[in-house]
Design a binder for these strands. Structure first.
Length: 204
DNA sequence: CGTTTGATGCTCT
DNA sequence: GAGCATCAAACGG
């Protein structure tokens, strides 16, 4: 058996689909699949973060040791550590050097649920496995060792896949969650009827 | 239900 | 020293 996903018909997303700005790419990621080993989920909530021009972005102050991945090639996974205990995962998008990325905020679990439950013993219901950016990282086993991997590479430990599944409803956009600056930019997108969207509330 | 608070450590000022 | 792209438990009604 290969280490490929167990998602029928899934193929890697081409890097050319990630070359536009994060604001354009983010809603287009809804419905795609994020996979780590045998664990996978469909993306139901995302947020766009731009480069230096976005005061809420980690890239706002230019490249540093922490955010260096954001300034790399589209398709790299930017994984960061926050609040002293949580990991969150982004897909780098847009031209290299600009620092744009899309934060994956929630997944609808598709495969490897037993592994996810083991990785997230505090989650009481399956709908709580991946309904938040740090929750899905924990459920899939994503941490700092995955920073900089290429989600377009079939051999990467973290992959972005397209299985042909498409949202049946129009994505809703609104303010990003958990930020203190640029709070009005409506750069969060989610599928309004999906129970796996996070429960975070916009600041303000 | 809703709101509040403690945990915990890295990054940049 | 302040702030953090969060989460879960502990409250109160």
């Amino acid at each position: 058996m290969s280490s490929g996903s167990s998602i029928p018909g899934a193929r890697p997303v081409g890097r050319d689909h990630l070359m536009a700005s994060p604001v354009e790419v983010a809603p287009a990621l809804l419905g795609l699949v994020l996979a780590v080993g045998g664990r996978a989920g469909r993306i139901v909530e995302v947020e766009a973060y731009l480069g230096v021009e976005d005061p809420a972005s980690h890239a706002h102050r230019g490249p540093t040791a922490r955010n260096a991945t954001m300034f790399g090639t589209a398709g790299l996974l930017y994984v960061y550590f926050v609040y002293g205990m949580h990991w969150c995962a982004n897909v780098v998008t847009g031209p290299e050097g600009e620092g744009g990325a899309v934060l994956v905020r929630a997944l609808s679990p598709m495969a490897g649920l037993d592994e996810m439950r083991t990785a997230r013993p505090r989650a009481r219901r399956d709908r709580d496995l991946c309904n938040g950016p740090a929750k899905l990282a924990q459920a899939l086993g994503i941490d700092g060792t995955h920073n900089g991997v290429d989600v377009c590479d079939p051999d990467s430990p973290v992959r972005l896949l397209d299985d042909g599944g498409r949202p049946t409803v129009e994505p809703v956009s609104g303010p990003r969650i958990g930020i203190s600056r640029a709070v009005d930019a409506p750069w969060r997108w989610y599928l309004p009827d999906d129970p796996h969207v996070s429960k975070g509330l916009p600041t303000r």
